[in-house]
């Protein structure tokens, strides 16, 4: 089965992960800019990071026949530094022109501070002005419900096209409000801290699937790129067809990401006898 990893932090992972993903059917990964585990002090560090994910990382993925795309943003944790955020935002349009850059992300909220909210608004505004897709991170654990509500309030006060906005890391307590507002919703499957493969399949069975995306967890912390495949196995084990799986794990990412013409992987149909 062909699989797309819509949210994958490749710079934190090994070549062996690429190799195993390729063996399991992954054809493309999308790498949003994220927090490195420490707060970067210089805008130039972001610029080098954006160059890494837009220029170098596609070559590493290509060694294994995997397409690599990226997103650029100042993540919510570092958005607390206003001066740094402003300087990076000024240089982001250059990277939005890169042939594998799909949009602005991951922006969003962490603790929902005034500076984070201001940064989220600036990122969304930049994206809309440049007709870009937006990937929005929602907070972890106990901050999630409040942070997601705040994201939706911020977006409601702006002129945005919900078709182009993906709100990520939804769980049972937040998915309804995100879908009801017309946005795409992403589930991120972690071994401990976010949604699990089985709970993701529960959600897939309960909600309309047309705007749902499923991501593995793949970063420098406790995470596992193969939680995505775990959820596919769980989905199939419950009796859903291969085509239904393809719709979720391959075609939905194609439909959302394909709004950017740089994304040229098309939805596929499986012919079963």
């Amino acid at each position: 089965m062909q699989i797309i990893q819509p949210h994958y932090h490749a710079i934190a992972r090994t070549a062996q992960d690429y190799e195993r993903m390729a063996m399991s059917g992954v054809v493309a990964v999308c790498e949003p800019a994220f927090w490195a585990g420490f707060d970067r002090r210089h805008p130039e560090t972001f610029i080098d990071y954006f160059a890494q994910i837009s220029e170098f990382e596609p070559t590493r993925a290509a060694e294994f026949g995997i397409r690599h795309y990226c997103w650029v943003a100042v993540n919510p944790k570092e958005a607390e530094n206003k001066e740094l955020t402003d300087e990076v935002l000024q240089q982001m349009p250059e990277f939005l022109e890169k042939p594998t850059c799909l949009g602005v992300g991951e922006t969003g909220l962490h603790k929902s501070t005034p500076n984070e909210i201001e940064s989220l608004e600036a990122h969304v505004d930049l994206a809309m002005k440049h007709d870009q897709l937006v990937l929005i991170h929602t907070p972890h654990l106990s901050d999630k419900a409040h942070g997601t509500k705040t994201v939706l309030e911020v977006l409601a006060g702006m002129e945005v096209n919900p078709d182009k906005i993906w709100i990520d890391h939804v769980e049972e307590q937040t998915i309804g409000s995100v879908l009801n507002a017309g946005y795409w919703a992403g589930m991120t499957l972690y071994p401990v801290t976010k949604c699990s493969p089985r709970r993701a399949v529960d959600i897939l069975e309960k909600y309309p699937r047309e705007r749902l995306l499923v991501n593995s967890s793949a970063d420098w912390g406790p995470s596992d790129p193969f939680t995505l495949q775990e959820s596919i196995v769980e989905f199939r084990r419950r009796g859903h067809s291969l085509q239904e799986a393809v719709e979720i794990y391959h075609n939905n990412p194609c439909r959302f990401l394909g709004q950017n013409p740089k994304w040229d992987i098309k939805p596929i149909t499986i012919y079963e006898e």
């Binding site: 401990v192 699990s196 089985r198 709970r199 529960d202």
Partner: peptide
């Protein structure tokens, strides 16, 4: 956090 995850799995 691991216990929280396990309880969520039971709830689900």
């Amino acid at each position: 956090l691991e216990a929280r995850r396990d309880l969520l799995e039971v709830a689900a």
